[in-house]
Amino acid sequence: MSDLSADYAVLNRVRHNLDHIAGLMKKPGREMTQVTGESMGVPELAQRMDHFGEEWSYGIKQLTKFSEKASEMLLKVKESFEKLDHELAETSKRQGAK
């Protein structure tokens, strides 16, 4: 018996959390791109706000991409473990039948 194991419930919960984070991050990212520095009134503040908005939007997009990719990778890990479990069970059955 192998010492390696995977808790599918934990993998599913982490994936769900990452998907939820990605969904939450999309809205502020979109909203921040719509805020203009011009709406601040003061020219220097307007420039800083434009710059901040661009950086904020970029950062949020990166976090969203990371969350989505991490979720995809966890799904692949889970699927790989499930496939390995199935293959080991089949091998065990064949060896037991001999």
Results as ranks from 00 to 15, higher is better:
Val77Leu: 10
Phe81His: 13
Met25Trp: 12
Arg94Val: 11
Ser39Phe: 05
Lys26Arg: 13
Tyr58Trp: 07
Glu82His: 03
Lys27Arg: 09
Asp50Tyr: 06
Glu44Ile: 00
Glu44His: 04
Leu45His: 03
Val77Gln: 00
His16Thr: 12
Glu55Pro: 02
Met49Glu: 06
Gly53Asn: 14
Leu63Asn: 12
Ile21Leu: 13
Lys69His: 08
Gly29Met: 12
Gly53His: 00
Ala6Asp: 03
Glu68Ser: 07
Ala22Tyr: 06
Ser71Glu: 07
Lys76Gln: 14
Leu74Val: 07
Arg13Asp: 15
Met73Asn: 01
Asp85Lys: 00
Leu74Ile: 08
Ala89Val: 01
Leu18Ala: 06
Lys69Phe: 12
His20Asp: 13
Leu74Trp: 11
Leu45Ala: 14
Val35Lys: 11
Ser67Arg: 09
Val35Ile: 13
Glu38Arg: 06
Ala9Asn: 13
Glu82Lys: 09
Gly59Asn: 12
Thr36Pro: 04
Val14Leu: 15
Pro43Thr: 03
Ser5His: 04
Lys83Glu: 12
Glu31Pro: 07
His16Phe: 13
Ser39Thr: 09
Glu31Gly: 11
Leu88Pro: 02
Ser39Ala: 14
Leu63Trp: 15
Gln95Arg: 03
Glu31Gln: 14
Lys26Ser: 10
Pro43Cys: 03
Met25Ser: 00
Asn17Glu: 15
Met73Cys: 11
Asp3Ile: 02
Leu74Asp: 09
Thr36Lys: 15
Leu84Gln: 01
Lys83Ala: 15
Ala89Ile: 00
Asp7Ser: 05
Ala70Lys: 09
Val42Met: 01
Leu45Phe: 11
Gln62His: 05
Glu72Lys: 07
His16Glu: 15
Gly23Ile: 02
Met25Gln: 09
Val77Cys: 06
Ala89Asn: 10
Leu45Cys: 02
Lys61Gly: 12
Leu74Ala: 09
Thr91Gly: 01
Met49Ser: 07
Asn17Thr: 15
Ala70Glu: 11
His20Met: 03
Ile60Val: 07
Lys78Tyr: 01
Ala89Ser: 11
Ser67Gln: 08
Ala89Leu: 02
Phe66Cys: 05
Leu24Ala: 15
Val10Arg: 12
Gly53Gln: 10
Ala9Leu: 09
Val42Glu: 15
Gly53Trp: 04
